[in-house]
Simulated scan of single mutants.
Amino acid sequence: MGTRFVDRERELAVLEEVYASGRSELVVVYGRRRLGKTFLIRRFLRGRRGLYLVVNYAERELALRDLSRQLSVATGLEASFQWLRDLLRFAARLLGERPVIVIDGFQRLAGI
């Protein structure tokens, strides 16, 4: 039995509306643990050119090394970045027009 998509239609509609705006936008999805945020975002990403990255470390060097590794695994291309902005620019160029880049755990990057 698969996971059901319950009570997230409004949030999904907001993401669809922001995406349809045609502008580059930052959307913050937050809430308590285990409420379906990741499921919502993965559902939104279906059929889109997107990238889902998870920040596993708060320390800059470790975080960027791990994010670079995740990008390499997702794309099949070797990638290594010392700055978050370079990683994001590379990913956006690679994904092409209207990319969606998700950074789960973005708050851990506050010091980077």
Rank of each mutant, 00 (worst) to 15 (best):
T3F: 11
R8Q: 03
R8E: 01
E9Q: 08
E11W: 10
A13Q: 12
E16Q: 13
V18H: 09
Y19K: 02
S21M: 08
S21G: 12
R23A: 14
R23I: 02
R23E: 15
S24I: 06
V27L: 10
V29R: 07
G31W: 11
R32I: 09
R33I: 02
R34G: 04
G36Q: 02
T38K: 00
T38D: 06
I41V: 15
I41Q: 05
R42D: 12
R42Q: 15
R42H: 12
R43T: 15
F44T: 02
F44R: 01
F44K: 02
L45W: 11
R46A: 08
R48A: 04
R48E: 07
R49Y: 12
G50W: 06
G50A: 04
L51V: 01
L53S: 02
V54T: 15
N56K: 15
N56D: 14
Y57D: 14
R60W: 08
E61A: 08
L62Q: 14
L62R: 15
A63N: 03
D66F: 04
L67F: 06
L67K: 01
R69N: 08
Q70N: 05
L71C: 04
S72G: 14
V73W: 05
T75N: 03
G76H: 06
E78Y: 13
A79F: 13
S80L: 05
F81R: 00
Q82S: 12
Q82W: 07
L84A: 08
R85M: 05
D86Y: 10
D86P: 01
D86W: 10
L88Y: 13
R89C: 06
F90Y: 15
A92M: 02
A92C: 05
L94N: 02
L94I: 00
G96H: 09
G96N: 04
E97F: 10
P99W: 11
V100M: 05
I101H: 07
I101M: 07
V102P: 10
A110W: 14
A110R: 14
A110I: 08
G111L: 09
I112Y: 15
